[in-house]
Computed example of a mutant assay.
Amino acid sequence: MKAVIQEILRISSVVPLGVLHELVNDIDFHGYRLPKGLLLIPNMYHIHHDKKIWGDAEKFRPERFLNEDESRVIRSDLLVPFQAGKRQCLGEPLAKDVLFLYTAKIYQHFHTLPDPSNPKPNFEYDDGCVLATKPYRVVVKSRC
């Protein structure tokens, strides 16, 4: 379940751009001189969809967050859905716990299936400060 949630956070990149960071010192970065006071915007969407990092970045593969024998979840420093850098979201641990409990509870009690009248979801987004998916129908059936 944790690997599935990590992959959902990666592929959805709900907040595509991070919060502005200001450089407190001049730095050299890959041959570029970046002056003190420069404002940087982390592009989390690009990090999460970079084929150099993830290979088949467009595919939903939760197993990319599992070790070789798929017995435990591995952490990737390149998964940054809650901001990049030292000042990540303070609510990250709570958000991850809530996502886990909410998702696990749904799948404990319900089967979810694609709506037969609309079997393929549209993965296009409405652009904005957050990425919102287009509406999509599913069929939810009780496991009881």
Rank of each mutant, 00 (worst) to 15 (best):
K52M: 09
V14Y: 04
Y32H: 05
K2P: 15
I11P: 04
L113F: 14
E124K: 08
R87Y: 04
D97S: 11
I53M: 08
G55Q: 08
Q83C: 08
H30W: 09
I8D: 11
V15A: 13
Y107V: 13
I27N: 05
P42L: 00
P116C: 03
K2E: 14
E68L: 01
R75K: 14
G128Q: 11
G37P: 12
A57T: 06
P42K: 01
K141M: 13
P135I: 05
K141H: 11
M1D: 08
C144D: 15
T112V: 13
E63C: 03
P135L: 05
N122R: 14
V19M: 09
L40T: 10
A57E: 12
P93Y: 07
C89L: 07
N118G: 11
I74R: 00
L99F: 06
P119R: 13
V73T: 14
L39F: 10
G55S: 10
F60C: 05
D97A: 15
S142P: 15
M1R: 00
A132T: 15
N67K: 07
K134N: 14
V130N: 08
Q83D: 12
L66A: 02
V24E: 09
A84I: 11
K51A: 09
D126Q: 13
H49Q: 08
H21K: 02
C89F: 12
H111T: 09
C144S: 12
L113S: 12
D127L: 11
L23S: 09
